[in-house]
Design a protein around this nucleic acid. Sequence first.
DNA 1: TAGTGGTCTAGACCACATT
DNA 2: ATGTGGTCTAGACCACTAG
Lengths: 261, 261
Amino acid sequence: MAKTGDRSRAVPGSALALLHFALDRTSPVPLYYQLAQQLEAAIEQGALAPGDLLGNEIDLSTRLGLSRPTVRQAIQSLVDKGLLVRRRGVGTQVVHSQVKRPLELSSLYDDLEAAGQGPTTRVVRNEHVPATADVAAALGVPEGGDVVRLERLRATHGQPVAFLCNHLPATLLDLDTERLESTGLYRLLRSAGITLHSARQTIGARSATAEEAGLLAEKEGAALLTMQRTAYDDTGRPVEYGTHVYRASRYAFDFQLLVRS
Amino acid sequence: MAKTGDRSRAVPGSALALLHFALDRTSPVPLYYQLAQQLEAAIEQGALAPGDLLGNEIDLSTRLGLSRPTVRQAIQSLVDKGLLVRRRGVGTQVVHSQVKRPLELSSLYDDLEAAGQGPTTRVVRNEHVPATADVAAALGVPEGGDVVRLERLRATHGQPVAFLCNHLPATLLDLDTERLESTGLYRLLRSAGITLHSARQTIGARSATAEEAGLLAEKEGAALLTMQRTAYDDTGRPVEYGTHVYRASRYAFDFQLLVRS
DNA sequence: TAGTGGTCTAGACCACATT
DNA sequence: ATGTGGTCTAGACCACTAG
């Protein structure tokens, strides 16, 4: 209503008015991306509070010297991330939440890497083997074809956490055992120019066999978390098939889901 | 090279040329969405095979009588779904994969609903209780505040599968026990106008207690899958906090991840 | 009735990959 | 050198929400 109103309630559209955005047209970074990053920073730092309205897109674009589609692209990318909400006839506002960014969708990267101090990895096996039926099906290679079999034991704080068994197409890359012990498999793939794009996962549980119990310092019959994963690169080709076993007493999967309408 | 070349290899850009797309400008359905749906159908039905090129966006737009941004919007939505891949200087092609659409990102909807025949649900408890500390923290209500506590036992084929304990803000909606037994909680929320938007999940495992074993027809100490979830609506407000226990012998989580660059 | 986001157009120039 | 997608502009009209 009144332009100079009660300050105890935010004046709609004013939250952004005070902020300054620095756009560099000479930068190779796209303008919409620069704007999106600065908006995201403003939200994370609290300059834009949950529920704040952004003000309409037309004003915003003229104020920033951008076209409306460019501003929309920036806003849309944050909507996709779950940081903003658009409502027709109402406006765009900062999402009303505690969980700003609890966890990336990750879980494709070795989750242990982020969970506390540096994990250690011991490579138990790293050799070429003929593909068994399940491996062949997952990797899309003929049964009996040449694949790399990798077995690793991962630990943090001197305690074993997981036993990881992975299979990869033999032609994909050379897996150096030494580097595998100092970094994650996915980091290695990435540095070899392989960009992961999607993965199909199955998470379950079962009781530890005697052998697993020995490897993981658990008692036989203890509850274990299991995960099977097939990962694909950006062309949709399978690049990795993993069968992992985690100590349930020391590990859990933790992630955020976004519903796509 | 030659325009009329070897037919054993697909002529780039020709895959789409033979397809017909029916766009209805009088429909309230957006044009980019109509196009996206028909492209997706063509991919799923195999009219567009993995690796096929779509042909450049300019030609496509003129052929369809659409502007390039509109065509791009359609293509982009399929890229986001993981069905198409764009490569600058190369073109857009159908993703090279077996996994067309193995599973939705779902898992927000009651997963059991899709897994085989109709599951049955028995509501064990459905009452208002004061919020405990963990519930209060998850739902963003004061400790001791009024919340609804829901306990359900779910079964398929006459066998128990999971014990579900959920907490919801008391003011959110009325939970009719009868309807809860005939449908899922999330369907109920949706029909009450609450649109879920995101969720934070933790999946782990542990051994069954005596009580859990009794409920789920397992032996004490059997491996169980556990899941904790806080779900948020499209404004970011928490609407549900669940603590679920699944029989590992009869259930596993199965989903697909998309890496967002 | 006014204001918002949702959709759409018809151009333009650039960066990159292939030939 | 050519062709591709990536980005950007400056408008337009529509559908929905609010007061």
